[in-house]
Amino acid sequence: MHYLLRLILPRLTLAVITLFTVSLIIFWAVEFLPGDTATRILGRDATPERVQALRQQLHLDDPSWVRYWRWLSSVARGDLGESLVSNVPASVASAGGRQRRAVADMILPRLRNTLILAAFALVLYIPLSLLLGIVTALYRERFFASALSAAILVGTAIPEFVVGIILLLTFAVVLPLFPPLALIDRAHTPLEVIYTLTLPALTLTLAMTAYAVRMMQSSLISVLESDYVRMATLKGLSRTRVIFYHALPNALGPALRVTVLNVAWLIGGVVLVEVIFNFPGLGHSLVDSIRLLDTPVIEAIALILAGVYILANLGADLVAAALNPRLRTG
């Protein structure tokens, strides 16, 4: 299994460098945005002297590199720091000496919610896009497959928040099957979680599936038309064996790449879907922290997203290596 180590180790080293670079870029990008945390918090009450007082309180007067170093060294110790903005909630206020909320406390429950939703969406997405990809590739000359392809093309063109609103109005209002608000914090049994999350998960699935199916379809078609598949068919192998054993593993590559992008999107980019179903996910936190220029929170979420992206890519490489023996040597 040493090829696995050869595959993973350099990537992990690169990952650390990437994360560090991401943190640098994010920090300086936030520095260059107009206004600062103090003016964003105060809003219409931002008189110069009040802004000045709040700046001092938040240590925004320190030079930026000092603040970056302070943040970086705390992260290196495994502490994501505390929010510039959010006060410690009443329930835990008596517990510690902190004035403001620990970034980890703010983000981890939301990350958990987001991961549950993402997992649910992926569980629906993988079989659905595989199935549709195979069907549209195999029966590409039949009318129903063309119609399906056309429908998928239309699906690609509809933004996910429109899909979300349509699903909301159809399956929560006109046909009251599912709840409009995805109140995950009140769902305790797995069945309740599924009931609560069906509509947002379905929205995400539809948004992701369209593109993946198109990739799957086109690569499967080109593989099906290749010489070795024709050879396998001529040898008299069963159709199922040809498709699932010979053709599919080689056709999965491009779809796998799309899936990696989709996973990264599921973790941080689904804020519009979160808004429609009032889902307390990571996207909300990201938008809120950017609006308030709450740098430690923005940094933490950015690192999580970059990390997810790196891990998903690594995972895709491993799957690709499993599917294609040629990648295991060399």
């Binding site: 909301l168 929560a172 209002v173 709840p179 409009p180 608000l181 429609i276």
Partner: peptide, 11 residues
Amino acid sequence: PSRVAALQRGQ
């Protein structure tokens, strides 16, 4: 739209 739907469904 979500607010209205939540009211209509009694959430």
